[in-house]
């Protein structure tokens, strides 16, 4: 009963904030509404019994991805007072994407009873435990691949944004010790009135 009421609260706030994400003018506000979306989606996961997913959504999406989005928005220097582009330009594409999503949801709703029969939900163990029992042994290859994907992301981000030492002066002790007077100092006899080239 309470769970049913909470479902409608979470779902309504989720939909309302999702609408706000695409309709508010300021990009920063849109990101903040996105965070509200994540929170409510986490609430829905919790109601489904997917506790691990709910808290991963909070930790990873709210804690990290939303912050990343905020940084991107701040970096791009986009202002909300720019004139809105005409709706006509984006309408066909957004309708197309929306139609594909709608078809998927309908197909899913139609085939849900069969899918539920295949995916037997274990109710006697916690789902974090259920996940852990198969993720590191039965699904070892996807798990290792995910590690490699994270490594690629890390190196890619560094390669794209790191621009050397940026002209900062830092003490390099080895370079100082390796420096020898005969390499860097030269004495010249300068004749009067001629100078050196």
């Amino acid at each position: 009963m309470i769970a049913g009421a909470m479902f409608y609260v979470f779902a309504l706030v989720l939909i309302a904030s999702a609408v706000a994400v695409v309709s508010v003018r300021q990009p920063v506000n849109a990101v903040l509404f996105l965070i509200l979306c994540f929170f409510n989606a986490a609430g829905l996961f919790l109601l489904l019994g997917a506790e691990f997913l709910a808290f991963i959504l909070l930790i990873v999406y709210v804690g990290a991805v939303a912050v990343l989005f905020l940084f991107v928005v701040m970096m791009l220097d986009v202002q909300g007072d720019a004139p809105r582009p005409p709706l006509k330009r984006f309408l066909p594409m957004s309708l197309g994407v929306g139609a594909v999503l709608l078809v998927q949801v309908v197909v899913m709703a139609v085939f849900w009873p069969q899918a539920q029969a295949v995916i037997s939900v274990a109710t006697d163990i916690e789902n974090t435990k259920a996940l852990g029992r198969v993720l590191y042994t039965d699904f070892i290859y996807p798990f290792q691949v995910s590690g490699l994907v994270l490594l690629t992301a890390m190196i890619g981000a560094i390669a794209l944004t790191q621009r050397g030492s940026r002209g900062t002066k830092r003490q390099n002790v080895q370079a100082q010790l390796d420096r020898r007077a005969e390499d860097v100092v030269s004495l010249h006899h300068v004749e009067s009135g001629k100078g050196i080239l």
Binding site: V60, L68, F71, M75, A153, I158, T161
Partner: peptide, 8 residues
Amino acid sequence: YLIAILFI
């Protein structure tokens, strides 16, 4: 941005 990515 780099710090945020590495954090994620």
